[in-house]
Every structure is written in structure tokens, then in C-alpha cells.
Computed example of a mutant assay.
Amino acid sequence: MRAAYVSSLQPDAPLSGLTVGELPFSVPDGWVPVAVRASSLNQHDIWSLRGVGLPADRLPMILGCDAAGVDPDGRAVLVYPVVQDKADPRGYSLFSERHPGTLAEQVAAPRENLLPIPDGVSFAEAACLPTAWLTAYHMLVTRGRAADAGAILVQGAGGGVATAAVAIGVALGKKVYATSREQWKRDRISELGAVAVEPGGRLPERVDVVIESVGEPTFEHSMKCAAPGARIVVCGATGGHLARVDLRRVFAMQLEILGSSMGTPGELGELLEMCASGRIRPVIDSRYPFAEAAKAFARLSSGELFGKVVLEH
């Protein structure tokens, strides 16, 4: 089976540990094979290549958390990326952490992890949803309680989660502000229906929800933009994890700082229905045939993308 996998851990040059080649395929008892039609890349894949959360004794490890394809009954399905795992301290793991990932011709998954793809949603669109878009949806709807919010701030739009949060926030009918360092990305933010802001820029109003995936460079700005009782929801720290927090502002403004990771199968189903109804369309930066997986990873690593990078079979 052809697959994109981690052949060696390279903390300082992660792409040098990426190999595209043949690996054996097996299906654990109680699981089913899915013929992959499309998959999408995530920063999680880059961290895996660096060896974060992936020890050397698990190599070679097929990369990828997200896949859409066809099950043994011929149904178009989306693979939910979370596997219950008693061996992991979290109680779960993602594909490519303990079980082979989705960047391959086939992936094995528990049958309960397969969601039917509605008519009108392509394999490529569906493959964007399970990690980045699900994370953004869970941050906004569940952790951030966006239903009670007037305005939302998304830090660092351009990457998968932040761009998804912009699109979902707009679809929910909220006033969305989003930051980016680059003018062309701010132009794309405006095209999605949000208000583009330079990093650290003053907003015309305070917001009720902040979506934080950047961390150290933006967290002070997130705190200053938060309205009384606002929720600052954190799913990552791509810019650094040692953010300064003014505790006086936290208690004076009664702010909530909430961690968030992934989402539920039910939420993923809700995202699929939003796609099918046309309320949202996953933002795809670029598509590559599977044979050009190395080019797709180079694109992901460039930092010049806006939305998701998709591999198609």
C-alpha cells in the first residue's frame, strides 16, 4: 500500500523524515478498511515529523488524521479522527499517533468512526473537516458558547483552524474580526465576510469570544479585546506557549480562559450538514495528487497558505 509516513524523526528539518512509499496494510479486529479518496494535512503532521508525541519505537508511522473515502459497502464516508485509547493519558489518541494515519491508499478505522457524507459534499471538502474545522466548531459552539456572543475575534487567520473559525463564525451570523500579518491574507479574510485587522490592532468593540491558536505573540491582545465575561478559547500555541497573563484583568473582567481540543462525532455530523446545506464551504488552499505528497507538505510548511492542503487519490 502506498503511504506517506514518518521514516525518521527530524526535529530541526521535519520534512527530511518524510517518506512516500510502500507499507503493509492490516485491519484490526472489529475495524473496517476505507479506500481513501481525499485527505488533508494538518500542523499535527509536522509535529509528528519533529517527534512531538511520536516516539521512535512507533516508526514507521503513516501520517494524517483526516480522510474521506469509500467503505466496504460502497458508501461515501468521513473518518472521525479520534480513537478511544486506554494506553494514552488523555483516554484517546488521533490517527497517526498510535494507529496508522490517513495519508495512504487505505486506512483502517472503527466502524463507529465512519460518518456518511451527504449529497453535495465532495470528498475533498469532507476531508478538510475532521481536525481543523471540527476543532474550530467545538471552540466556537461548545467551549466558546457562540450562541450567546455578539462579536468574535480570531487570531492568526490563514491556517486551518483559524480560517475555519472565521468561516463558521460568519455562518453563525456573528460579527467576526480576524487578524493576520499579511495584507493578502487580510484581503481573503474580508472575502469570507469578516473584518480584517492587523495584529495588535484596535477593534471598534470588545468581543465575547476569542479564538486563540497562536499563543504568546497574540495573547495580550486577546485579553485587551475581551469584553466582560468573555471566553478566550485556546487550542494551540504555534507562536509560543509561555504567554503573559495579567491576572488583574482576568478577575476584574471575569474572563474565562478555556482549553479546547478536537470535538465530538455529533459535532462533525453537524459540520457535514452545514456543508450540505451550503451554509459553509471548507476553504481549500491547494490540491495535490497523492504522488506529490512531498510538494503538499512543502506547501503546508511554507506558511503562505490560506485554508487547507488536500491530497487526492
Rank of each mutant, 00 (worst) to 15 (best):
P100M: 09
G173W: 09
E125F: 04
W133S: 08
K86D: 15
F95S: 04
A171Y: 09
T179H: 13
A171S: 15
P55Q: 13
H99S: 13
V121W: 04
C128Y: 02
A136F: 03
V166Y: 02
A68Y: 05
Y177V: 13
V79H: 05
V154R: 08
E182W: 08
A149E: 04
A164F: 06
S122G: 12
H99M: 10
P116Y: 01
D71L: 12
S93D: 08
S122V: 03
L63W: 10
Q183S: 14
P110A: 06
K86A: 15
T142E: 11
A147R: 13
G69W: 04
P110G: 09
T179K: 14
G101M: 06
G159D: 07
R186A: 14
D85W: 07
A164C: 06
D119A: 14
A136S: 07
C65T: 15
V77L: 13
A147T: 05
I168T: 10
A67Q: 10
Y92M: 11
R181I: 07
Y137S: 00
T142D: 09
A136R: 06
V170C: 12
D85V: 08
P118I: 02
D71V: 09
M139C: 09
L59C: 14
L153R: 07
F123G: 02
G158I: 03
S96T: 05
P55L: 12
A165H: 08
D148R: 14
P130Q: 02
H99Y: 15
D119K: 10
A165W: 05
P118G: 03
A157E: 05
H138T: 04
A67G: 10
Y137D: 00
L59I: 12
V166E: 05
M139F: 00
R186I: 13
I117G: 00
M139E: 04
G160Y: 05
D66M: 10
L129I: 04
E125D: 15
V154S: 05
D119P: 00
G156W: 08
P130R: 01
I62L: 11
N113H: 13
H138L: 00
R143T: 13
G120P: 08
A87I: 01
T179E: 08
E125M: 01
P130F: 01
A171C: 12
Y137G: 01
V83K: 12
R181F: 03
A109K: 04
A157K: 06
G101V: 07
P130K: 00
G74F: 07
P116K: 06
A165N: 12
A171D: 09
A157G: 12
Q106H: 14
P116N: 09
V141F: 01
R58Y: 11
E112I: 02
G120V: 01
G158M: 01
